[in-house]
Design a protein around this nucleic acid. Sequence first.
DNA 1: CCAGCTTGCGAAATCGTTTTCTTCGCAACT
DNA 2: AGTTGCGAAGAAAACGATTTCGCAAGCTGG
Lengths: 346, 346
Amino acid sequence: MPSTKLANSEAKIVKLKDVALRAGCSLATASRALNGNPTVGEVERERVLAAAAQLGYVPNNSARALRAQTKHLVGVIIPTLDHAIYAKMVDGLQDRLAQAGTSVIINTSGYDLERERSQARLLVARGVEAIILVGAEHQTQTVETLARAGVSQILTYTDTPGDASGAVGFDNYASGISAAKYLLELGHRRFGMIAGLTQHNDRARLRRDGYLDAIMEAGISRDNVVVLEAPYSIDAGGAAMRSLMQTHPRPTAVFCGSDILAVGAVKYCGPAGISVPKDVSIIGFDNLEIAHVVEPELTTIDVPAREMGQMAAEALIEFKKSGEKGIVKTLQTRLLIRQSTGPAPD
Amino acid sequence: MPSTKLANSEAKIVKLKDVALRAGCSLATASRALNGNPTVGEVERERVLAAAAQLGYVPNNSARALRAQTKHLVGVIIPTLDHAIYAKMVDGLQDRLAQAGTSVIINTSGYDLERERSQARLLVARGVEAIILVGAEHQTQTVETLARAGVSQILTYTDTPGDASGAVGFDNYASGISAAKYLLELGHRRFGMIAGLTQHNDRARLRRDGYLDAIMEAGISRDNVVVLEAPYSIDAGGAAMRSLMQTHPRPTAVFCGSDILAVGAVKYCGPAGISVPKDVSIIGFDNLEIAHVVEPELTTIDVPAREMGQMAAEALIEFKKSGEKGIVKTLQTRLLIRQSTGPAPD
DNA sequence: CCAGCTTGCGAAATCGTTTTCTTCGCAACT
DNA sequence: AGTTGCGAAGAAAACGATTTCGCAAGCTGG
């Protein structure tokens, strides 16, 4: 019944038919003109384009998708938008995909792979053509659901695609190694690490393993390195640092799995009478803005998050064209030396 | 052919017709059964549901959306995901909307209203049923496009809905006043402000105006307050602070339109030999994480960003039910007094 | 000058649902 | 008995685009 609602009095939606009418041609021609089909003449095309512009025509995507079987829609599932590192990645992704006329639906899993799975299913129902995930570790059900629905997957923050269509990221393990090497060069011999929670998080795990392996490699005894885990929050980082500083002998260098943790660690030291970097060196990860704000400024490993998002978008586009699985784009992380690290105390 | 299914290369898509066939009923009945329409008998419904489950039926969202004109899809356009304040808002929004079975498409405008307009068009084309915008100032074309497409609009970060369907936010003007009042109470008489770029940004403008008006109200001469504008970045905040500190006589209190700017300001002071808060008091806005990290910790105005997102979601749901335009939900900002403010120097 | 090709365009089929319209049967009322 | 009312379910009409097919010119080459 038309009388039920009359909130929007003038809500006339302009359809392709209206455009065609205005341009004085058929629906078919209008459609072709707008889609850049070369079989339509120059004059006619101009007329259609002009009409569309004048009327402010916006094509109905559902109809288009229904008929043409292309939705120009991808989903992304990240742990949380709260952390700048993921927000930046999504920003880059979104930016690049928008240029290709593709929209992005975002879901957050809160580091919970179970929730990730249900989000994935939801996205499939929504008809996304592809999905962007973080990390290499996922439930087999997630992967299967996606594969069965013919949804291609791009992994980020990792350089090992596994069964996915592609991966865009960096070598977490190597990054851990580089942190260790730098600290070893500075003469440190007793190490600590505040890792993110490694369960169901391959990135946190690999950073830790790289760090540990490089230290072992240098002939340091496993007794001289203490590893703690903490959820990604400043407070948790501070708490972990406290535990670390209570061990005897205490480490002179601490590598943190994220700047968030590192900031917590640094902030703990001041009031506790521990000097950074004189008494203890601290390295972060991600190169967030806060790394620059905290005192002393944080030595950290820079992760090009925005580029990663952009390149993920490109990998996706590339994959859709070529159909070749296993595209890998590796980005480089860089150790940024600032003020939170220094030579080992005597 | 009776061969049930090829491995997983070419999975046959099961349509409603298949379900109906299997359940031995018509399309219409199958549709009704699946949608919980009460006019279908118990027995029939069970049969349809069973058939759908067995076949692993997933409705084609495009077709459904096309016919039923409901996509369970909303768009949000924010300036950038880079700033935690917006990321948090989106996070809250997404969270709450997901519970209602609605997905969110995110676009970023980079504080550019022109880009916002084109993003809006894109979202309309995608068929979003509503759109969430930031602030009250938008191009008339944006508003028109949305109105014409029958897309409801919810504004955030503002409490004045204008022509939109609703607004969820806070009183930027009043927040500016409260900052000024607090500084006046502390005895300050010469004021500075580092505002965000106020062009096309009503929020930045209102905060500034509230601040200024409250100061004037207290009988302070306009000569004793200097207002600068800066893009939202730490460096720009620092640069603005430098300019501010070079005026004579220089302000003893500075209000910044964002914590980002305030952090830049605070960071500038240390090396410049200016003590915060002894020589100059600084107030931020947003209560970002960095406000807590910088030394001294920042007095700031807390903006409940995540709640704002959640409430925007609720406003939207409410609006869809009632159809009443002009829902306004006002949130309270709070002045959080920390260490970057103190009594005016003698 | 005509067969054969290309080009430009319109009519109509199509995508997979939801929703209206209709029909049918049966119980209940006048 | 005839009519009405009602619940359940099927047939067919939307929804708004794209795409297939076919037709009518306008060429070209033999």
